[in-house]
Design a protein around this nucleic acid. Sequence first.
RNA 1: GGCUCCAUGGUCAAGCGGUUAAGACGUAGCCCUCUCAAGGCUGAAUCAGGGGUUCGAUUCCCCUUGGAGUCACCA
Length: 494
Amino acid sequence: MKIRTRFAPSPTGRMHVGNLRTALYSYLIAKHEGGDFLLRIEDTDQERFVEGALDIIYRTMAGTGLIHDEGPDKDGGCGPYVQSERQAQGLYMKYAKELVEKGEAYYCFCDEERLASLKTKVSDDDDAVVISHYDKHCLSLSKEEVEAKLAAGVPYVIRQNNPTEGTTTFHDVIYGDITVDNSELDDMILIKSDGFPTYNFANVVDDHLMNITHVVRGKEYLSSAPKYNRLYEAFGWEIPTYIHCPLITNEEHKKLSKRSGHSSYEDLLEQGFLTEAIVNYVALLGWSPSDNEEIFSLEELVEKFDYTRINKSSAVFDVPKLRWMNGEYIKKMDNDAYYEKALPVIKEVVTKDYDLIKIADLVKTRIEVFPDIKDLIDFFEELPEYDVAMYTHKKMKTNSENSLEVLKEVLPLFEANDDYSREGIEKLLMDYIHAKEIKNGQGLWPVRCAVSGKQSTPGGAYEICEIIGKDETIKRIKKGIEMLNTACEAAKEQ
RNA sequence: GGCUCCAUGGUCAAGCGGUUAAGACGUAGCCCUCUCAAGGCUGAAUCAGGGGUUCGAUUCCCCUUGGAGUCACCA
């Protein structure tokens, strides 16, 4: 039997990483076995629909490479793939009525007020949680009463009719058999008063009609799974394989939600993460391969993915590790791809006519995310204000006096020099250092400080001088001499 | 609060009765080195607690504790 999985998002905004991972796992499970991966849009809540959210879904799927075989834009014979369109065909109502006839569902005319009276507050520490359990009030309505209300146009919903005794057991690949008392099963709404199906109902109907074999979804749905089973059984349909994925949480171990912010795929892109790194990292939240590798392309994931190795416990979304992984991907990038990403960021900071490629090369192993570049290279554009104390470095054996000496002696050499290639500068400086018989650091530290104004820089003195060129190098060394002069004189006076 | 699930270092995790309890991120130190990275090496750090079962439990069972999810005309 061919595996068919589906990703069924609601068009309510950006896609947060939990959804992305669900989509990824669905895709991987299908593709690992050469099965089909479908995209279905669950837009049964008209109020929550967000303009443009559909585009985000398509863009995310295409961007991450999770290409669907069937979907709203790719008919595979199970369409339409948008639930509002299916609703318009009266599809869900038809199935709901079938259930009513079987006694597995019933019309409910209870108004908001009555429903509210059913709600009970339960104190959960400081947060007051409101729960409700429908009391089957309308189940006792006679056929005639129902007909009369229907004819009178009284608003109604259709509810699932769950037994109050006995137990229901369902099976999940990851969590095993789970049994609950039927008394726990609320008579959930199947068809809302606006005629739309609820997520729960549409899901079951569509998964069956679309021949979905493996239902992949988040663990937050685990508690509603028994009610699904009752629906399948009521219809006499085959129950698909359930694969509930563990939650992805924030640092506080709470479920990652849209409100957590900065946790959607697009947020991450805006923060400078590469989609390959995001996909790779997210794949490893809740799943691990049998070997020790960690860096995987989507193709490799397809090959390696084994859903029986998915974990049970939730995983914290650890940004530092994502950053590390992103850095690994940056290092692996070929020049074209790297420059395409790096140069625009560099241009934001450096407007001077410098060799931006050289700057890009300098920072490649020093960043984890592209925006990191900015803070690293700002000194190229303009020499920052700095403290002369920087020239004093214990390990380099430098201080204000000998730094001043070095800069003074090196200045004429720079002025006389015309070879500002990296090699040229190296020769100039090393010849000087050898002649003076000092340690490399003693000569190079003051120069690098003068030329960058920073304690630490990507690259060393040679590279920086090469990039900023003769005029700027001389200008900055003079500035250093000037500052050290005043500092040394002030010291003498004391 | 009811129900359900989960429990190996700070984080991701391997382990599926007998191991010196992998590996990765992070972290500490060292090497390299003109700084910062990268790279190399080394270290610290984990089986929540208590009962069983067993010749032997991280591993199987139970309880406790802790955490999470869920309890909508949202998905």
